[in-house]
Protein backbone atom coordinates (compact mmCIF):
# COMPACT_ATOMS: atom_id res chain seq x y z
CA UNK A 1 0.00 0.00 0.00
CA UNK A 2 2.65 2.49 1.09
CA UNK A 3 4.98 1.45 -1.68
CA UNK A 4 2.21 1.99 -4.19
CA UNK A 5 1.60 5.49 -2.86
CA UNK A 6 5.31 6.24 -2.77
CA UNK A 7 5.44 5.07 -6.36
CA UNK A 8 2.69 7.56 -7.27
CA UNK A 9 4.74 10.36 -5.73
CA UNK A 10 8.19 9.34 -6.96
CA UNK A 11 7.42 8.18 -10.48
CA UNK A 12 6.77 11.67 -11.95
CA UNK A 13 10.01 12.97 -10.42
CA UNK A 14 12.01 10.93 -12.91
CA UNK A 15 10.61 13.13 -15.68
CA UNK A 16 12.70 16.31 -16.10
CA UNK A 17 9.69 18.30 -17.32
CA UNK A 18 7.80 17.48 -14.13
CA UNK A 19 10.67 18.62 -11.92
CA UNK A 20 10.91 21.88 -13.86
CA UNK A 21 7.17 22.36 -13.48
CA UNK A 22 7.41 21.72 -9.72
CA UNK A 23 10.13 24.34 -9.31
CA UNK A 24 8.19 26.84 -11.44
CA UNK A 25 4.99 26.28 -9.46
CA UNK A 26 6.83 26.63 -6.15
CA UNK A 27 8.53 29.90 -7.16
CA UNK A 28 5.40 31.35 -8.75
CA UNK A 29 3.22 30.24 -5.86
CA UNK A 30 5.45 31.93 -3.27
CA UNK A 31 5.58 35.16 -5.30
CA UNK A 32 1.84 35.32 -5.91
CA UNK A 33 0.89 34.38 -2.36
CA UNK A 34 3.05 37.15 -0.84
CA UNK A 35 1.85 39.78 -3.31
CA UNK A 36 -1.67 38.40 -2.98
CA UNK A 37 -1.74 39.30 0.73
CA UNK A 38 -1.76 42.99 -0.21
CA UNK A 39 -4.06 42.39 -3.20
CA UNK A 40 -6.66 40.82 -0.90
CA UNK A 41 -6.20 43.15 2.07
CA UNK A 42 -6.46 46.27 -0.12
CA UNK A 43 -9.40 44.81 -2.08
CA UNK A 44 -7.47 44.99 -5.35
CA UNK A 45 -8.69 41.65 -6.73
CA UNK A 46 -10.43 43.33 -9.67
CA UNK A 47 -7.38 45.32 -10.75
CA UNK A 48 -5.22 42.20 -10.48
CA UNK A 49 -7.72 40.42 -12.77
CA UNK A 50 -7.40 43.28 -15.26
CA UNK A 51 -3.60 43.09 -15.17
CA UNK A 52 -3.48 39.33 -15.70
CA UNK A 53 -6.03 39.37 -18.54
CA UNK A 54 -4.29 42.23 -20.33
CA UNK A 55 -1.20 40.04 -20.69
CA UNK A 56 -2.97 38.38 -23.65
CA UNK A 57 -2.58 41.23 -26.20
CA UNK A 58 0.96 41.83 -24.95
CA UNK A 59 2.11 38.27 -25.60
CA UNK A 60 0.30 37.91 -28.95
CA UNK A 61 1.54 41.30 -30.11
CA UNK A 62 5.09 40.42 -29.11
CA UNK A 63 4.91 37.14 -31.07
CA UNK A 64 3.55 38.97 -34.14
CA UNK A 65 6.29 41.59 -33.95
CA UNK A 66 8.94 39.08 -33.02
CA UNK A 67 10.28 40.10 -29.62
CA UNK A 68 10.24 38.52 -26.18
CA UNK A 69 6.71 37.61 -25.03
CA UNK A 70 7.69 38.46 -21.44
CA UNK A 71 8.52 42.04 -22.41
CA UNK A 72 5.28 42.32 -24.38
CA UNK A 73 3.28 40.98 -21.44
CA UNK A 74 4.93 43.34 -18.97
CA UNK A 75 4.36 46.33 -21.25
CA UNK A 76 0.68 45.44 -21.67
CA UNK A 77 0.17 44.96 -17.93
CA UNK A 78 1.85 48.27 -17.11
CA UNK A 79 -0.21 49.97 -19.84
CA UNK A 80 -3.39 48.62 -18.23
CA UNK A 81 -2.37 49.81 -14.77
CA UNK A 82 -1.39 53.24 -16.06
CA UNK A 83 -4.50 53.53 -18.23
CA UNK A 84 -6.82 52.60 -15.37
CA UNK A 85 -5.10 55.09 -13.06
CA UNK A 86 -5.34 57.83 -15.72
CA UNK A 87 -9.01 57.15 -16.49
CA UNK A 88 -9.88 57.06 -12.79
CA UNK A 89 -8.17 60.41 -12.21
CA UNK A 90 -10.61 62.13 -14.62
CA UNK A 91 -13.68 63.59 -13.05
CA UNK A 92 -16.88 61.55 -13.14
CA UNK A 93 -15.23 58.18 -13.64
CA UNK A 94 -14.82 55.78 -10.74
CA UNK A 95 -11.78 53.57 -10.45
CA UNK A 96 -14.01 50.51 -10.63
CA UNK A 97 -15.41 51.36 -14.04
CA UNK A 98 -12.00 52.58 -15.28
CA UNK A 99 -10.54 49.15 -14.52
CA UNK A 100 -13.55 47.49 -16.18
CA UNK A 101 -13.00 49.54 -19.34
CA UNK A 102 -9.27 48.78 -19.50
CA UNK A 103 -9.83 45.07 -18.81
CA UNK A 104 -12.34 44.56 -21.61
CA UNK A 105 -10.54 46.80 -24.11
CA UNK A 106 -7.23 45.01 -23.60
CA UNK A 107 -8.79 41.57 -23.73
CA UNK A 108 -10.72 42.43 -26.90
CA UNK A 109 -7.51 43.74 -28.47
CA UNK A 110 -5.89 40.42 -27.57
CA UNK A 111 -8.66 38.43 -29.24
CA UNK A 112 -8.38 40.59 -32.37
CA UNK A 113 -4.61 40.09 -32.45
CA UNK A 114 -5.06 36.33 -32.08
CA UNK A 115 -7.26 36.40 -35.18
CA UNK A 116 -4.41 38.20 -36.98
CA UNK A 117 -2.00 35.50 -35.91
CA UNK A 118 -4.45 33.07 -37.51
CA UNK A 119 -4.06 30.37 -34.96
CA UNK A 120 -6.09 29.98 -31.81
CA UNK A 121 -4.55 26.63 -30.97
CA UNK A 122 -1.10 28.06 -30.29
CA UNK A 123 -2.51 30.39 -27.71
CA UNK A 124 -4.43 27.83 -25.67
CA UNK A 125 -1.39 27.53 -23.43
CA UNK A 126 -1.37 31.27 -22.94
CA UNK A 127 -5.02 31.34 -21.93
CA UNK A 128 -5.10 28.20 -19.81
CA UNK A 129 -1.48 27.62 -18.80
CA UNK A 130 1.07 25.03 -19.83
CA UNK A 131 3.35 24.54 -16.88
CA UNK A 132 4.58 21.19 -18.21
CA UNK A 133 6.07 23.03 -21.20
CA UNK A 134 8.20 25.31 -18.99
CA UNK A 135 11.80 25.37 -20.20
CA UNK A 136 15.02 26.37 -18.49
CA UNK A 137 14.73 29.90 -19.86
CA UNK A 138 11.21 30.35 -18.48
CA UNK A 139 12.44 29.02 -15.16
CA UNK A 140 15.17 31.67 -15.06
CA UNK A 141 12.62 34.43 -15.75
CA UNK A 142 10.29 33.13 -13.05
CA UNK A 143 13.14 32.88 -10.53
CA UNK A 144 14.42 36.37 -11.30
CA UNK A 145 10.93 37.87 -10.97
CA UNK A 146 10.34 36.02 -7.71
CA UNK A 147 13.58 37.39 -6.30
CA UNK A 148 12.74 40.93 -7.43
CA UNK A 149 9.19 40.88 -6.10
CA UNK A 150 10.14 39.34 -2.76
CA UNK A 151 12.97 41.81 -2.29
CA UNK A 152 10.61 44.69 -3.07
CA UNK A 153 8.03 43.44 -0.58
CA UNK A 154 10.66 42.95 2.12
CA UNK A 155 12.31 46.33 1.57
CA UNK A 156 9.05 48.29 1.56
CA UNK A 157 7.26 46.14 4.13
CA UNK A 158 6.47 48.83 6.67
CA UNK A 159 5.56 51.46 4.08
CA UNK A 160 3.20 49.07 2.27
CA UNK A 161 1.66 47.88 5.54
CA UNK A 162 1.09 51.43 6.79
CA UNK A 163 -0.29 52.71 3.48
CA UNK A 164 -2.62 49.72 3.23
CA UNK A 165 -3.92 50.04 6.78
CA UNK A 166 -4.20 53.79 7.34
CA UNK A 167 -3.76 55.88 4.22
CA UNK A 168 -4.20 59.23 5.94
CA UNK A 169 -1.58 58.55 8.60
CA UNK A 170 0.76 57.30 5.88
CA UNK A 171 0.49 60.59 4.04
CA UNK A 172 0.87 62.51 7.32
CA UNK A 173 4.20 60.77 7.90
CA UNK A 174 5.20 61.39 4.28
CA UNK A 175 5.13 57.72 3.27
CA UNK A 176 3.31 58.56 0.00
CA UNK A 177 0.40 56.09 -0.19
CA UNK A 178 -0.22 56.92 -3.87
CA UNK A 179 3.37 55.99 -4.72
CA UNK A 180 3.04 52.80 -2.66
CA UNK A 181 -0.06 51.87 -4.64
CA UNK A 182 1.79 52.32 -7.92
CA UNK A 183 4.74 50.26 -6.68
CA UNK A 184 2.34 47.51 -5.66
CA UNK A 185 0.60 47.56 -9.06
CA UNK A 186 3.97 47.31 -10.80
CA UNK A 187 4.93 44.36 -8.60
CA UNK A 188 1.59 42.66 -9.34
CA UNK A 189 2.18 43.19 -13.07
CA UNK A 190 5.65 41.66 -12.72
CA UNK A 191 4.33 38.70 -10.74
CA UNK A 192 1.46 38.14 -13.17
CA UNK A 193 3.79 38.11 -16.16
CA UNK A 194 6.00 35.45 -14.63
CA UNK A 195 3.10 33.28 -13.47
CA UNK A 196 1.09 33.32 -16.68
CA UNK A 197 2.92 30.14 -17.80
CA UNK A 198 1.68 28.26 -14.77
CA UNK A 199 -2.09 28.63 -14.94
CA UNK A 200 -2.73 30.92 -17.93
CA UNK A 201 -3.95 34.48 -18.36
CA UNK A 202 -7.52 33.61 -17.41
CA UNK A 203 -6.64 31.95 -14.11
CA UNK A 204 -3.59 33.85 -12.80
CA UNK A 205 -5.84 35.96 -10.57
CA UNK A 206 -6.64 32.76 -8.69
CA UNK A 207 -3.00 32.47 -7.59
CA UNK A 208 -3.13 36.01 -6.21
CA UNK A 209 -6.48 35.76 -4.50
CA UNK A 210 -7.09 32.20 -3.24
CA UNK A 211 -3.93 31.52 -1.16
CA UNK A 212 -3.95 35.04 0.31
CA UNK A 213 -7.67 34.80 1.12
CA UNK A 214 -6.86 31.60 3.00
CA UNK A 215 -4.07 33.44 4.79
CA UNK A 216 -6.37 36.27 5.81
CA UNK A 217 -8.64 33.73 7.51
CA UNK A 218 -5.77 32.27 9.51
CA UNK A 219 -3.13 34.97 10.09
CA UNK A 220 -3.11 37.74 12.70
CA UNK A 221 -0.36 39.85 11.16
CA UNK A 222 0.69 40.57 7.57
CA UNK A 223 3.74 38.22 7.70
CA UNK A 224 1.49 35.47 9.11
CA UNK A 225 -1.03 36.02 6.31
CA UNK A 226 1.81 35.70 3.81
CA UNK A 227 3.16 32.57 5.48
CA UNK A 228 -0.24 30.82 5.46
CA UNK A 229 -0.74 31.94 1.87
CA UNK A 230 2.62 30.52 0.82
CA UNK A 231 1.77 27.23 2.52
CA UNK A 232 -1.57 27.08 0.75
CA UNK A 233 -0.05 27.94 -2.64
CA UNK A 234 2.72 25.34 -2.28
CA UNK A 235 0.35 22.60 -1.13
CA UNK A 236 -2.19 23.43 -3.83
CA UNK A 237 0.38 23.88 -6.58
CA UNK A 238 2.26 20.64 -5.92
CA UNK A 239 -0.86 18.52 -5.43
CA UNK A 240 -2.41 20.11 -8.53
CA UNK A 241 0.59 19.07 -10.60
CA UNK A 242 0.43 15.50 -9.32
CA UNK A 243 -3.31 15.44 -9.95
CA UNK A 244 -2.93 16.45 -13.58
CA UNK A 245 -0.01 14.02 -14.04
CA UNK A 246 -2.03 11.04 -12.88
CA UNK A 247 -5.35 12.21 -14.33
CA UNK A 248 -4.54 13.50 -17.83
CA UNK A 249 -8.17 14.66 -18.15
CA UNK A 250 -7.37 17.52 -15.73
CA UNK A 251 -5.19 20.24 -17.31
CA UNK A 252 -2.36 21.39 -15.04
CA UNK A 253 -3.55 24.99 -14.66
CA UNK A 254 -7.05 23.96 -13.67
CA UNK A 255 -5.66 21.28 -11.34
CA UNK A 256 -3.47 23.81 -9.51
CA UNK A 257 -6.30 26.29 -9.03
CA UNK A 258 -8.74 23.60 -7.86
CA UNK A 259 -6.21 22.22 -5.39
CA UNK A 260 -5.53 25.73 -4.03
CA UNK A 261 -9.25 26.19 -3.45
CA UNK A 262 -9.37 23.15 -1.16
CA UNK A 263 -7.35 24.69 1.73
CA UNK A 264 -9.42 27.86 1.34
CA UNK A 265 -12.61 25.86 1.76
CA UNK A 266 -11.18 24.04 4.79
CA UNK A 267 -10.06 27.33 6.37
CA UNK A 268 -13.45 28.89 5.65
CA UNK A 269 -15.22 26.01 7.36
CA UNK A 270 -12.91 25.37 10.29
CA UNK A 271 -10.91 28.55 10.99
CA UNK A 272 -11.65 30.00 14.42
CA UNK A 273 -13.82 33.06 14.23
CA UNK A 274 -11.83 36.16 15.10
Amino acid sequence: MTTAMLELLLEPLSEPFFVRALVAVALGGVTCACLGAYVVLRRMAFVSTALTHSILPGVVGALLLGFSPYLGALAAALLTAGGAAWLASRKGSSEDSAIGVMLSVMFAAGVALMQQANSWRDFAGLLFGSVVAVGAEDLAVIAATAAGVLFGLRALHKELELASFDEEYASLLGARPALMRMVLLALVALGAVSCVRLVGALLTTALFVIPAATGVLLGRTVPQVMAWGVGCALAGGVSGLYLSYHLPAVPSGAGIVLCCALPYLLARLFAPRR
Binding site: E168, R220, V222
Partner: peptide, 18 residues
Protein backbone atom coordinates in the same frame (compact mmCIF):
# COMPACT_ATOMS: atom_id res chain seq x y z
CA UNK B 1 -13.48 58.96 12.16
CA UNK B 2 -10.16 57.34 11.28
CA UNK B 3 -10.37 55.69 7.86
CA UNK B 4 -8.79 52.34 8.65
CA UNK B 5 -8.91 49.39 6.30
CA UNK B 6 -11.47 47.01 7.76
CA UNK B 7 -10.28 43.59 8.83
CA UNK B 8 -6.59 44.40 8.31
CA UNK B 9 -4.44 41.84 10.17
CA UNK B 10 -2.64 43.97 12.71
CA UNK B 11 -2.09 43.63 16.44
CA UNK B 12 -2.30 46.62 18.77
CA UNK B 13 1.43 46.65 19.49
CA UNK B 14 2.22 46.92 15.77
CA UNK B 15 -0.33 49.72 15.36
CA UNK B 16 1.37 51.71 18.13
CA UNK B 17 4.78 50.86 16.68
CA UNK B 18 3.71 52.57 13.44
Amino acid sequence: RPQLTEGFPLIVRRLVQM
